Simulated assay, not measured.
Amino acid sequence: MHLGKSYKVTEFLIWTRRQIYWLLIWGCVPVVLYKLFAFTWLSVPLTIVVLLGTATSFIVGFKNVQTYNRATEALDIWVDILGKSRRWGQIARDFVEDKQLSRKLVYRHLAWLTALRYELRRPRVWEGAGKRFNAEYRRFYRVPEWERDIDELLPDYLPPSEAAQALSSPSVPTHILSLQSTSLRMLHTTGCLGSHFYMELHRSLGDFISLQSRAEGFKNFPYPRQYATVSSLFVKFFCLLFPFGLLHEFDKLNDGMTGFMQGNMIWLVVPCSVAVSWMYTSLEQVGESTENPFEGGANDVPISTLCSIIERDLKEMLGEQTADPTVGVIIAL
């Protein structure tokens, strides 16, 4: 997630430059045909284009509101995980008699966080992180889950036998929560954990299962394809027709013009159509980059950074030290 003040205009132009190239080329086509080849019948009534633009703006606006809500709710999930993880570490530290057992509970929770963020970073066919304009922007930030394999990290938090079992499971984070539940039951049976705090930790496990399911819901179920498709089609259709709707209007401006621009006002269709169409295509591209909050894009929920913050706080509760949580943040803008 972009955590700076704002995007620079130059960055935004570079990010959308391929759209600008196509709009520039397409904007020239009707002008050349109209001016040089006298295809004056190509002009489309501006009223039709305006009506289409109005409908398109409603569709694109609706999509952007919905994708923003998806990103906001996904962030709320991880803020809940942050708060409940701190509570987990506090209870595990203060109310488990054996400090080594406390450490195991905390580290198993860190293993769950690691497995969950790796699970959420796995690509899906509908995600756009692999598109060229998004892939090029990755030079400004890191996606730690794509730099190291989970097999290298999980043994840092779990005993070898537990790590091997988890890695062989179809759902690594779910298996780790199951191991955590079994461990709590054994601690309670042996008297190492009182009934009240056992129930408190067990309730927290239920919360983690619920939060994991909600996060996986955003990952595995995209913004409805029918709305995404109609929004994209409307924007493309509007951008195709818009320069044709300006031909006759700009041609009429020649009547009151003198000097160099006399008879050449039609060429202003190109920059005007590019400017207006670029606004629509940029809104569409922004909405698309926001609809999948865990795909590894610049506008994602910063789950890598949040996990680092949780790890730092829980290890500090145990009297251990860790590095500053800066991974996953865009730091060069």
Rank of each mutant, 00 (worst) to 15 (best):
A38V: 05
I25W: 00
E127P: 04
Q100D: 11
M1Q: 04
A92P: 14
M261A: 11
T114D: 11
G256T: 07
G259F: 02
G287W: 01
T189K: 12
E316D: 15
L205A: 02
G259I: 03
S57Y: 09
L101W: 11
P302M: 09
L158P: 00
T174V: 14
D251H: 15
G61M: 04
I330T: 09
S85L: 14
D98V: 07
L110C: 15
K236Q: 06
C192F: 12
N64S: 01
R93K: 10
S308A: 13
I331P: 13
F95I: 13
L154M: 01
F62N: 06
S57N: 11
F242E: 15
K5D: 12
F133C: 02
Y21P: 01
A38H: 11
D300K: 08
A275R: 13
L314W: 02
Q212N: 08
K219L: 06
R312K: 14
C192T: 06
H196W: 08
F234N: 10
W88Y: 06
L253E: 00
L314R: 14
E249V: 06
G83D: 07
C28R: 04
S168C: 05
P170L: 02
L314S: 04
S168P: 00
G217K: 12
A332V: 12
S213D: 14
F260V: 09
V235I: 00
L75S: 15
F244I: 15
Q285E: 08
E136A: 09
D300V: 03
V235A: 13
